[in-house]
Amino acid sequence: MSNLVEVPVNPEVVQDQFVVYKKPKTLTDKPLHYCPGCAHGVVHKLLMEVVDEMDIQDKIIGVAPVGCSVFAYDYMNIDMQEAAHGRACAVGTAIKRMMPDKFVFTYQGDGDLAAIGIAETIHAANRGENMLVVFINNAVYGMTSGQMAPTTLPDMVTTTTPFGRDVKTMGYPLRMSELLAQLPATYYITRQSVHNAVSVRKAKKALRQALEYQKEGKGFCMVEFVGNCPSNWRMTPLESQKFVEEKMTQYYVVGDVKVPGGK
């Protein structure tokens, strides 16, 4: 027995003045394949909200990675390319060089951006490619179901670090934002999260800022998101948000890492 009651919707009642929330028009109607509680859905929505607000749906090209967000192009109603694993920054570079007047972003996870694709990431940043990199760092390989990422925290348990990440043999988690901020050609590097309402609002501002900078031709911008992965962290969505707040953001400090004119 279901305790859900179907309430018929009267379209005459659903009037614009009563709408307090709706999805951005540049998100498709396809149901997301992401696990419940995953940060990807929120970041997808924020990014497309910004595209809507800047009215650049016809001027932006996205590059999807290999990883959980491999199907990002199913959800974002814009022209997109699907890159080989780790090569999104190379693909994005070329798209932007061919069409400097268009907006270009890559959307990449930690394995894609910081492991197999770190060379492409660093060199695109070092050339100051005038594009946005959206980096989702959830410290684990999601799509292949929970192996160690280059950003896995010390002592964190994954399927390939069953006794915890031993930094003596497995190295230290890479802080990509700090690493890229050292390069003279990077313009705006910021680390955000989406684990509560306040952070979501700040994160959206960061995405908007980065795309505004791209419009002005300022150069390479990256917005890193300290994400979560309830499924592979073996946590409930709520527990995973708590882990982001208590553990992840201790190592990956949220805030601007490099801003124009500042440090």
């Binding site: 090569r87 693909v91 070329a94």
Partner: peptide
């Protein structure tokens, strides 16, 4: 014409993919 020295052949071929995807002659 854009002439870009990439950081590796791995990068060049993926740049080629991206650029070809914009319909350009690359």
């Amino acid at each position: 014409m854009v002439v870009l020295q990439a950081e590796s052949e791995v990068s060049s071929i993926n740049m080629l993919y991206g650029a070809a995807g914009t319909g350009r002659r690359v």
